Simulated assay, not measured.
Amino acid sequence: MDWLERAATLRQWTKGGARAPHKPLLLLYALSRFQEDADGELFYSAVEEDLKRLLAEYGPPNKTTPAYPFHHLVSDGVWEVRTAHGPGSPGSAVRDLRAAGAAGRLTPELRAAMRREPSLLGRMVRVLLDQHFPPSLHGELCEAIGLELEPAETDGLSPARRRRGRRMRELVLTAYEYQCAFCGYDGRIGTVPVGLEAAHVRWWAFGGPDDVDNRLCLCSLHHKLFDKGVLGIGDGHHILVSQHFVGRSPAAREHVIALAGRPLIGPQPGVHPVATRHRSWHTDQVFHGATRPAANLPRSRSRGGSGSRPQVSPRTPTG
């Protein structure tokens, strides 16, 4: 039985690139608990709050319930549910799972396979992370779930993985003149840029192309906040800041809240800015909550040169 293939092909509701990481998050959580107790059961009433938190932090902006994956993951052959009345889930309603004392765990076949081949767990985790989340969140998500993996455990082949363009990072950083499109940070050690990353707008895991019009040059901080849905890109290529973000320190106000409403620092003339279809996907599937009003702060970046060039509207490429 190919457990990696099963992890890669979980049955999910998908339409128009919508994110549905409910089953992957539950399976990652179950793999973590397997590390603690290989035969332990997860009672829905005991893990409901953990799963709610994971869905709120790493799921799409729309409200959802952990009862859905707890019930439906059974159909993928990696998860089983039982109640005091015997095997089988009582349904996908929260009240039914609670009232029946429903408990779930990985199937006996999968547990046996991971005992025979300990590295299987790490390889399944890698497949789930690659399929459903951007690389900037992988380490944090493992920590949040409690997964402890050795580097060798995550090596191995993931089914049908797309290959990224090796030169794309350099092309993106060059297009944005080696500065963060949100804050203008442009640090280097000698001639080598540090803390700058080529971020996908529409995630690679959800069909986002490896093209400049789906990429941004971002500093490490703003890349993480962009992938967590704290930051986004609105109409007119202005920066969105989620009202869900709370920061009282001067640093939080300066580096995050004060960005609200500011124009994105655009790419060089002649380079495609972020395409509307990718920007809209990020707003619908990643950005969390209502947007903060534009900050009542001076918008001058006082950096001079090309670093202060805002992108007010998409440019038409000239070459």
Rank of each mutant, 00 (worst) to 15 (best):
G17F: 02
V172T: 05
L297D: 07
L264E: 09
R116V: 10
L26P: 02
H200N: 08
A103M: 07
V194G: 02
I233K: 04
K228Q: 15
L110M: 15
S280H: 08
N296P: 10
I145Y: 06
H278M: 09
V172C: 05
V194C: 07
A160M: 08
S242N: 07
E150S: 06
H244V: 00
D210I: 13
R111S: 08
P90W: 06
Q285V: 03
V194T: 02
A38Y: 12
G266Y: 03
F287S: 01
P317H: 12
G208E: 06
T107V: 12
F226Y: 08
T174P: 00
A295K: 04
W3H: 15
Y176E: 07
R95M: 03
S300N: 12
V246T: 13
A99V: 01
W3C: 04
P298N: 11
L54G: 04
G184F: 06
I189T: 14
D284S: 06
L173P: 01
Y176Q: 03
T65W: 05
G304C: 05
Q179T: 02
R309S: 05
D213F: 08
A38C: 10
G307E: 06
V201R: 03
K63N: 08
I145H: 13
P118G: 10
G101I: 01
G16N: 11
Y176F: 13
R309E: 11
S242A: 08
K52S: 07
G16A: 13
R163D: 07
P263W: 10
W281Q: 03
F133N: 04
K15L: 14
E49I: 07
W281G: 00
I265K: 03
L110H: 11
L55T: 08
H278R: 02
D211R: 11
